[in-house]
């Protein structure tokens, strides 16, 4: 397999649009973790017209809630959670400038539309590789909603976080193309 392409965060528009589903990448820089409960709160704030505790413009959100760090450690296991649960919220964040999302599993039509209109990319990280991914996280700090525990928003500094462009800003979708390529049941059906 080809060497991963290094991506430095934050992403700009050109970089986002240059990425194609199937690209194997390695992420470097700052990302923010947020999952179900934090997304609900962010969108509630947008509904009320209030400022977000983290400016998501240009940023990348990682759908992840870590296990606790050991004393002196940066973070515990830190793999992705399933992304479709964030689908009801993601288009709102993309509309205010979110550029990247990292998770696992396919995104729905409304997210894809928002990704195309505003220019955003969705990376798949390796679900269940929480221990491996924790090694790529060099800094972690809770920056919003600490009362949510594992679901708080954390600012993470990552180095060489392995990922694959799963759905791109042009509608490219590895969940469709990759599966079609390796499907072997049709001929026999």
């Amino acid at each position: 397999m080809s060497e991963p392409v290094r991506i430095d965060l934050p992403l700009d528009d050109d970089r986002v649009r240059s990425l194609k589903a199937g690209d194997v990448v390695s992420l470097w820089g700052v990302i923010y973790s947020a999952r179900d409960a934090a997304h609900k709160r962010l969108v509630d704030l947008l509904d009320k017209g209030e400022p977000l505790p983290v400016d998501v413009a240009g940023q990348t959100i990682y759908y992840m809630g870590p296990s606790p760090a050991r004393p002196g450690g940066v973070i515990g296991a830190a793999g992705p959670t399933t992304s479709y649960r964030m689908d009801p919220y993601a288009p709102r964040l993309i509309a205010v400038g979110l550029k990247g999302m990292i998770g696992k599993g396919e995104r729905g039509a409304e997210v894809v539309e928002a990704m195309k209109s505003y220019g955003a990319v969705y990376f798949a990280a390796t679900g269940g590789a929480g221990a491996l991914i924790s090694r790529a996280i060099k800094g972690a700090e809770v920056v919003a909603f600490p009362e949510l525990g594992p679901e708080a928003i954390r600012r993470l500094v990552v180095e060489d976080l392995p990922a694959i462009v799963a759905q791109d800003a042009h509608g490219g979708n590895l969940f469709i193309d990759g599966v079609a390529k390796y499907r072997r049941d049709e001929a026999e059906a």
Partner: peptide, 26 residues
């Protein structure tokens, strides 16, 4: 690409056991 992902899962199991870290955050 799938082989590379499976390799990550094998590495992950080694890192978890060695570092006494959960295999998965869930």
């Amino acid at each position: 690409a799938a082989r590379a992902l499976l390799d990550q899962l094998l590495d992950n199991a080694g890192i978890a056991a060695e570092g006494q870290v959960p295999l998965c955050q869930d």
